[in-house]
Simulated scan of single mutants.
Amino acid sequence: MPSLKSSVGNRQHISLDDVCFLISVTNEYDELNQPIPTETLSMVYCSRLSVTRAEFSTAGQTGNKPNMMIVVDSDEYDGEGTLEYDRVKYSIYKVFLRPDGNTELYCEVDAGA
């Protein structure tokens, strides 16, 4: 289905010509009612950008260690907390919805991976 996003006021165009995998986790339960997490990967087009010095400083104050920012189409992002980029798993610690219809995902290396 085509997106109904407006292109009015879109001054900065970001080319989404790279690929990452958004990871969603669902729980299935065994016979003892214990959760068994299942990961589902969804391929999306993205653009990798550097984290600014201001973001690096702010994230460091909250205990995060920013590694990169991934920009994806807002229609593709559905609240996932983890992504895989270049065969490395990252945690998403901050999300910012841009006015151009894209979403910035601020990532740090997933300590559990």
Rank of each mutant, 00 (worst) to 15 (best):
S7A: 15
G101P: 10
F96S: 07
L32S: 14
D86P: 14
V95P: 04
Q12N: 13
P2Q: 11
S50D: 09
K89H: 05
N102R: 13
L41S: 03
I36Q: 03
E55M: 09
I70R: 02
T82Q: 08
R87S: 05
V71E: 13
Q34N: 06
P99H: 09
L105I: 08
M69G: 01
P2S: 04
L22I: 08
E31W: 02
V95T: 10
C46G: 15
D73I: 03
I92T: 15
I36P: 04
E108T: 00
V109N: 07
V109A: 15
D78K: 11
S47V: 08
P37C: 03
P99F: 10
D30H: 04
R98W: 15
I70L: 15
F56S: 11
Y106N: 14
P66D: 06
C107E: 03
V19C: 12
M43G: 11
F56L: 07
L83K: 00
I36H: 11
G101I: 06
R53M: 07
Y93L: 05
I14Q: 00
P66K: 12
M68R: 11
L49P: 10
R48T: 07
N33L: 12
G9F: 10
D100L: 00
K94R: 15
M43C: 13
D75Y: 00
S7T: 08
Y29H: 05
D100P: 00
P2G: 09
D86E: 15
D78H: 13
T26Q: 03
S57P: 04
